[in-house]
């Protein structure tokens, strides 16, 4: 009996702590994973994560200002970030998310661009950010790894 009570208490405690961990504004589908994967791990060996469902967390450092359709999440190591992309209109992230901590769940995807497509993609991204685009920054084909996000919680 004592064992059952102990197990129940443990279960309640663990569910409560996992719920507490993701308090904030909720977007899209509810988060199902509880253990975040470090962004640095994904950046280090992205191929190993392609197609895998992960939960990442970090500071939101950029938001798509026109459609709210992506977030850039800061890595746990300096000078790195990863983009979390959602289908336009399905989830709309607010601009006020910048600087807040986010938990984002989704599947890691790989985008392979020829130089021509990379130019198009980077030009589009620059337009979304409202910044000038320098074509010289694209020197050849590009491979981009990002998270196809299904749900997110952004702390208040």
């Amino acid at each position: 009996m004592k064992k059952i009570i102990f197990a129940l208490v443990l279960l309640i405690f663990s569910s409560a702590t996992s719920l507490l961990a993701f308090e904030g504004d909720k977007f899209g589908k509810p988060l199902t994973l509880t253990e975040p994967t470090k962004v640095s791990e994904i950046e280090k060996s992205p191929q190993a994560f392609v197609g895998k469902r992960v939960l990442i967390s970090g500071t939101v450092v950029e938001v798509c200002s026109t459609r709210g359709c992506w977030l850039d999440i800061a890595s746990d190591t300096p000078f790195e970030k990863i983009q979390a992309k959602v289908t336009d209109g399905v989830i709309v992230f607010p601009m006020s998310a910048r600087g807040r901590t986010a938990y984002v769940e989704g599947v890691v995807e790989e985008l392979k661009f020829s130089k021509k497509d990379a130019l198009k993609y980077q030009r589009h991204k620059a337009r979304e950010k409202g910044i000038p685009f320098d074509p010289a920054t694209v020197t050849g084909p590009q491979t981009i790894y990002r998270l196809r996000a299904h749900g997110a919680v952004i702390e208040k």
């Binding site: 500071t59 450092v61 800061a74 300096p78 000078f79 970030k81 910048r98 600087g99 807040r100 901590t101």
Partner: peptide, 13 residues
């Protein structure tokens, strides 16, 4: 919050 996108830049939110 703050973030360093590269060694030359500091972002303050």
């Amino acid at each position: 919050n703050s973030f360093r996108p590269d060694p030359q830049t500091l972002q303050i939110f």
